[in-house]
Structures are given as C-alpha cells and as structure tokens.
Simulated assay, not measured.
Amino acid sequence: MLRFSALLLCWGLLPTVLAQPYQLQVLADKLHYPWALTFLPDGDMLLTERSGTLKRLSPEGDERFSIEPDLPDLLKASQAGLQEVTLTPDFATSQRIILSYACGTLQANNTCLVSAELTDAGLSDIKKIFQAQPLKAGAAHFGGRITWLADHSLVLTLGDGFDYREQAQNPANHLGKLVRLHADGSVPADNPYVAKEGYAPELYSLGHRNVQGIFYDAASQTLYSHEHGPRGGDELNIIRAGANYGWPVATEGIDYTGARISPFSHYDGMQPPVWGWSPSIAPAGMTLYRGSLFRAWQGNIFVAALAGKSVRRLVLENQQVVQEQTLFSELQQRIRDVRTGPDGALYLLTDSQDGQLIKVLPAD
C-alpha cells in the first residue's frame, strides 16, 4: 500500500484549505489506458479501457471478467476508442448499462452510444442508440462523458473534432455540443431546440471544445462540466439548457502554433467559465465529493488532470470556486478519471499503457 500525506500546494489562495491526510492503495494495475469507472450496487466496479476492453472488478480490485464487447464500428486510434460506462437509472430491474465510444473509420467517424444488458459473463443485447453527426476525419476530440439528470435523461458530452472547431457554433450538428437523450436514445420533447428550424433536436448546449468531465449535483440542481482549451483556456462551466459557451469565438487559450484563436475572452450572449486554467492542465474526469470519509472535502469538486499530472480540488461557495488545491501529484502520473465511491473513498485511474486503479482513503 502506498501512503502519502496531502500537502497544501495552492500558495496565495485563501488559508482555509486544510491538509487532509490520506493514503493511496493500488487496487489494479497493468490496465491499458483505462478511461472510466462506475460502481455496481453489489460493490463491484465496471472499468473501461480505451483499447476496447470492459472489465468487472471486485471491491478489492480482483478481476471477475475482462471482455471486448462487440461494439458496432468501434474505432481504435489515438484518442479514439472505448470511453464512458454508466448504469441506467433503472439498472436494478433492467441490468442495462450505457457505453460511449468512437465509431467509424479514420476518414469518417464520431461518438456513438450503445445500450447493453450486463450479465455475469459480460454483455448481451447490445444496441446502438445514438451516433453524433456529421461524420468527420481524424481521431481527436470525441468528448464521451455521460451524466444523468433528475428526470433520468442523460447528457452526453461531444468534442469539436479538433480540425472542425468552427462547427461548435453551428447548431445544425453535434460537433462541440452537449446533447440530451432518453436512455433509449430518443429525444426529449422539452430539449431547448427540439422544434427550432436549423437546430439539431438533441442539442442541450453549444460552443464547447472537448468536454471530458461532467456531473449533475442533485442537491443544488446544477450541471457542471469542464473542457480542454488549446494552449491555456481550460474551463469549468455551469451548464444551462440552450446556452452558448463560446468556443471558438471566446477563449482564454491560444492556438498550438502560438497564433490567437480569437480576440475575445468573453463575448456578449455567451457564457463565461466559472473557473479556468492557463496554462492547460488538460482536465479529464470529474466528481463532486459527497462521501463520508473526508470531512474537509465535503461538497468539493475534484478534477483529474492529464497534462497537470494531478487532481485539482476546487472549493465552492455559492457556485463559485474560491480555492484550489493540487493533490496526488506525487504519483507523477496523468490522471484520466476520478470518482467518488459508494464507500466514501476517491478512486483514480492513471492514463498509461500500464495504468492503475488507485483508491484514496484517509490516513490511519
């Protein structure tokens, strides 16, 4: 078991961020670019690897099964592959899960969703329920994170396809958008643009770059997401139905060439972020901590960072970030996902070809 003590690394911020001693326990290793984690009612975990593998693990990290589900047109290349796994709200009776993944070919692809029944041995009755449009070339910026709203509709994050950033402002397609769907892939009748000509009916919000973190806080009825900027300009946003989040018209980031993407960091009619990172930390998974083990972390947001090789703890007051703390940088690993477990522990996935599942517990 690895043991570390959390250190305050946010010099210059408000002094009320207190160190919370913790220990790190590696539950599983030799994972091939693990991407997402979710928890089953019996305490087991489902874990995805970008290479196309779905694993079921015991609470102790022992492997119950490891399968490569038959996902229609799965694309594996660069950032493309298997992504999110989540349980449907009626899982207790239906045993169904949702998976997101990159689908198509290098010349024609986008993000897909499937619904499947979880069995003791793997998956059955796999059905494709959504494919983002249009199909585009390349293997970058797929989004792929999922959260469930209070009405049991799901919100799926989508990327701009990297080379198609102007399309994030085109309401007729799904590039650089969040979409809202029912669990069967159908479109909710109260989506903000469902009956508006020239708008894709699935749209929930637009003007995003590559959203790889999202959660819904039922207590405050607030939907949070974050997204990658280019060089700088990573954003944490509060999502409101029908709103425009600015990309690429308004951004704090610059292009990888050093050129300015836009003269505007803010623009009328477009929502500014509630927090940002420049230089980029490359935010990945995200969770809201409501567990019982870490009192000092109650109600805090935890953001996994790839380039930042850490997890950022954000302290909120009135839906505004007032403090930030850097955690787990001693691992010196790209962190792909961070989740709150039903036991109150935090769980981390490290992003590498020899990735790990790490459990964060209070120090003894």
Score class of each variant (00 low, 15 high):
T105M: 02
D125L: 05
E117M: 12
A121R: 12
I126N: 05
T93N: 15
Q131C: 10
G138M: 10
A108V: 05
C103H: 04
G144W: 03
D151P: 05
L113M: 11
I126C: 07
A137T: 07
T86D: 14
F130G: 02
S115K: 09
T147H: 01
A137S: 13
Q131E: 13
T93Q: 12
I146S: 06
D120L: 12
R145Y: 02
L123S: 07
K136D: 00
N109F: 03
S100R: 09
R96W: 10
L118E: 08
D120A: 14
V114Y: 01
L135W: 08
L123H: 06
A140Y: 13
S115C: 06
A108I: 06
I97N: 08
A102L: 13
A140M: 15
S124G: 06
A92K: 15
Q133S: 14
Q133L: 11
T86H: 12
K128S: 12
L113S: 07
G138C: 10
L149F: 00
A92E: 15
L99V: 14
F142L: 00
I98K: 09
D120F: 09
D90M: 04
D125H: 11
A92G: 12
F130L: 03
A150P: 08
H141A: 09
T147I: 01
A102D: 14
A121E: 14
A150W: 07
G138R: 08
A140S: 15
V114G: 06
I98L: 12
S100T: 12
L118V: 11
F130K: 01
I126G: 05
G143A: 02
N109I: 05
T93L: 14
A137C: 04
P89Y: 01
A150H: 09
G143F: 05
A140L: 14
G143C: 05
A139P: 06
I126P: 10
L99T: 10
I126E: 06
T86R: 11
G104C: 04
C112L: 01
D120G: 13
